[in-house]
Design a binder for these strands. Structure first.
Lengths: 261, 261
DNA sequence: CGCGAAATTGAGTACGTTCAAGAAAAGTGG
DNA sequence: CCACTTTTCTTGAACGTACTCAATTTCGCG
């Protein structure tokens, strides 16, 4: 891509896509989306880290029904949590963006009730086996943070449940577009023109919203023709946030900065 | 009901429906469904407790968009977490049974994104304002437990999202019946004949499953006519667990005992 | 017994699904 | 750089599950 020389940083906060050795050098931490960590906290995190893991697009980080999954922080890329039925029907529970934890539900000795799969090439920060418990013991504050992250993810799933349970197809699509765009914005991943990377296909959208692929396509198309959004070249641009928000009844409060493990 | 004199304990573990003063006397703790707490832990819990709260059936414990909700443990009765859209469409996120926490998501200074309402008369154990943070500081172990509870609730919501997103109406109903029956069983709330208290109406079921009231009724009826379950007098009896489980693809692993705050 | 809430049933409709096929886009290898 | 393959997107048509509307019955309770 010749353009990359001219426009080097699509991300407001550029960071190397591979998780560096030292947490101190962690590019994610430089993002204003996260609470700054104290030196002591950084040290604790670093001591509990056992390396990094790269998963190619489409690769599986945690399998459904897997035992003893580890704990990860997504460093770069998009991933998803999902569940499937025996005949292949799939429900995406939520999308994971940089800074999100993966594997938390599995830290309590139980079988994973969902899978985690990389949507784009992903880099994860990998923690030691008993990292979670150590964290609670050594830094109550950070244990508290983990609970906050868990609660925030649950509220995401809550919203998705309202969406699939009670919203119409256009409402669902509008919701998804607004939600993801807002999350990307917070992470500083939107470009100057307001567009954001959007590496998921219509099958992903359908599986996240509980719709069929065909109907997802038709609904997406209708909203685009109304001039509400633009979706091309793997990027999303919101053209009429007001109307999309009204359709979806999307009103999110500005949350406090997220802690970053 | 004349029968109540003959069969005094519908619950395997009887406990007074009102939360007693001393946690030591807490009837719930005597249930084998929960991990026993050490004397030190009990003391901590008791010190963080600021009393109990009774909410009549239909009453609201936490309003949607409420600020500064407190933290509660449901002591007796059924409650529900829910979200609504402006035109009244309602999605029940999950049902709360004795031992479940309420208000955890709101402990981090944010507005409640869901409501909590009592379905039957409920008694809650109420905690101090900063109880959660104190807990993490004083007993790392119990902070860890809270995260476990949060993770468990999220996995419940995950399952409900799969249900509304991808299961057919009969599958949804079968799932709900099996899920709730299993939870009641674990709490020792099933009678000798296998029946369990089931104080929700078809509107609740519809709102939990993302179905209309009418369709819920027809589906429920069909399953009952197939001899899979019996629903009357506010009680549920599973008549053919095997078939219901197969329809719903309901396979839950036996989880470890739940901690009780 | 009578009232209100909850459950039940039928009829017509609509939203979303499935089936099918073609167009566009994105990779792949020579 | 182009031919070829594969994936993704798009559109039309027929169908079906679930919804809405409406009316009746049953149940719980004072």
């Amino acid at each position: 891509m010749a353009a990359s020389r001219i426009a080097p940083a699509m991300n407001a906060v550029a960071h190397p896509s591979v998780c560096p050795r030292q947490c101190e050098d962690c590019g994610l931490r430089r993002s204003p989306a996260f609470t700054p960590a104290s030196a002591a906290e950084l040290e604790t995190i670093e001591s509990l880290r056992s390396g990094s893991l790269s998963v190619p697009a489409g690769g599986t980080l945690i399998r459904e029904r897997q035992l003893n999954a580890r704990l990860y922080t997504l460093y770069s890329g998009w991933a998803m949590r999902y569940k499937t039925l025996s005949d292949g029907r799939r429900q995406i529970l939520n999308f994971l963006l940089p800074g999100d934890l993966a594997g938390l539900q599995q830290q309590f000795g139980e079988v994973s009730s969902h899978g985690v799969e990389a949507i784009t090439d992903c880099h994860f920060c990998l923690f030691e086996d008993d990292a979670l418990w150590s964290l609670y013991r050594e830094h109550a504050r950070m244990g508290y943070d983990v609970t906050w992250l868990a609660a925030r993810e649950e509220s995401l799933v809550d919203e998705n449940l309202l969406t699939t349970g009670r919203r119409s197809a256009p409402e669902r699509v509008a919701m998804l577009l607004m939600q993801l765009h807002r999350r990307l914005e917070r992470l500083g991943l939107t470009a100057a023109d307001g567009s954001a990377p959007f590496p998921i296909n219509q099958q992903h959208i359908a599986d996240a919203l509980g719709l069929s692929l065909v109907h997802t396509n038709k609904t997406l198309r209708r909203l685009a023709q109304m001039g509400l959004h633009e979706l091309s070249g793997g990027r999303l641009r919101i053209l009429n946030a007001r109307v999309l928000a009204r359709i979806a009844e999307f009103y999110d409060s500005i949350p406090r900065l997220a802690p970053l493990l």
